[in-house]
Design a protein around this nucleic acid. Sequence first.
RNA 1: GCGCCCGUAGCUCAGCGGAUUAGAGCGCCUGUCUUCGGAACAGGAGGUCGUAGGUUCGAAUCCUUCCGGGCGUACCA
Length: 551
Amino acid sequence: MDELQDALKQAVKDLFNEDVEPKLTRSEEQFGDYTTNLAMQLGAKLGKQPREIAEAIAGKIRASEILAKTEVAGPGFINVFLSDKSLLDAMGKKPRQSNSGKSVVVEYSDPNPFKVLHVGHLYTSVVGDAIASLYEATGAEVARVNFGGDVGLHVAKTMWAIIQKLGGEAPSGLQSIDPGERAGWLAERYVEGNSAYEAEGSKAAIHELNKRIYQIVEQNDRESGLAQIYWATRQWSYDYFDAFYDRIGSRFDRYYPESETAEPGLKIVRQNIGKVFEESQGAVVFKGEVHNMHTRVFINSEGLPTYETKDVGLIFKKWQDYRFNRSVVITGNDIYEYMQVVLKAVEQIQPELAQKTVHITHGMVKAGGGLKMSSRLGNIIRAEDVLDAASQANKKANQQDNPQVALGAVKYAFLKNRLGSDMVFNPAESVSLQGNSGPYLQYALVRAGSILQKASNKQAVLDGKLEADERSLARKIGEFSEVVEVAAQEHLPSHICTYLYELAQNFNRFYEKNRIIGDAREPLRLGLANAYSEVLREGLRQLGIPAPEKM
RNA sequence: GCGCCCGUAGCUCAGCGGAUUAGAGCGCCUGUCUUCGGAACAGGAGGUCGUAGGUUCGAAUCCUUCCGGGCGUACCA
């Protein structure tokens, strides 16, 4: 609340000739709308009793017309109550555009072609979408990008198994695979290739294949049998990804396949051998120990780039393409230490790129009731299985088949937890229509829409004196813009979830006790219902949760 | 071993330096209701915030110890 902060700042200047940046916090409703601990902070500095200081400041700002009441409480808190008018005005406020004019690249999801999409990808995708939206809500120009390994050892493993399966490097055999089965078929080949690799016997052959695949990409070979198999099945993967993203409502501005970042990465790493990297045991490594990190291999002893080098290439490519003010990378926390090393290496080469990059990590998803791992695909939970499980739970529990509800349930279940720790996902719980769930919010919006629809020809105003319940609702609605600012700044979509749930509860409480249509206070209450509905809709949109017309 | 992350009600989680009773959902118990869509609302039982110290006017929140769990630790991604 800028006006209040300014008033406090001025008061402190006038009274004590000190320059401060007053911090406001939302207080419990009974204590007011905002609280500041300014006086306690000044107490030590000025050598005065905090309560005395608080009284003086409170006296000074009391005259402000945005405030209805100012109190000093406890050890020296200044509690302020907004006037009805400023409370109503705050409802329509947009979040502060702290990222206005900034170019932000958000990278997330990052599935590997030739492999299956699992719960982790779903989780990262949902989180990434939300974080990208939060940047946009605070004014940024956002590019959503997706990085994936279309070259590398896992590809070689898959290709090896494909060749076994087809009985040679014969692309014609691919035609017998049903288009609907392609992704699953590839995923099974990966698992086979991986076991073969671990069984040692085929290791050399797979390494050899790995080199050939790099060559195919480098020379843009479209002719050889292996190349034809590679390009065709690679496309299968991207088709599969696109279909999946379509299903969950994600869209990316750009895919960065590793095949495009390998060469630039290699070039940069090689240029910096002796400066940033060093040769060791036939490989090119970055010595992490001096920075309290792990040493990692960037170019292996066969001269091939590892993931590290491709990631270096990626960072420079992104820079070339977007000249970003900030680059956000969202992944699971299993690669936290890895990313630290890559960023440290980049920092030695071009410091600003590392400084502008933030790596956000989330925990792992564990399966709650009703979710089974696929042993056939290597003991993972497929992303589609999660959505299907939610759909089925929805059918069973609520006798309805609404993909929007199932998707909303899954997304909300993932987003409502603070990023960082592992989480348990339980499909049945997620589609529960009671309590803190996506469908509860979707339903709340449908319900509000129904009221507004019914009163569409009536007048709505945002003016007048508020009753207690109305005030409480208005206060909550007005918090939205601040919640968005905090969520964006902290990269925590969960704040939006918590807020929206509290908001919907607040409205339901109001609605339970008070009539809207037909009441003497109808215009104001319609105004409130309108503002509520808009905030709820916008919040769900930021989270990527669909808003059904009917439920 | 070392490094990073995480331990809050039976379960799943908010709260992440601020106040008297540490919150919510699920589950359990009790109510409201011929509803502007009840997929709702009101209430109850249930927690010495893993442990032991420390910093602070004030600690679930910051620092340290220990315990427990997850992840990472040179040619995978």
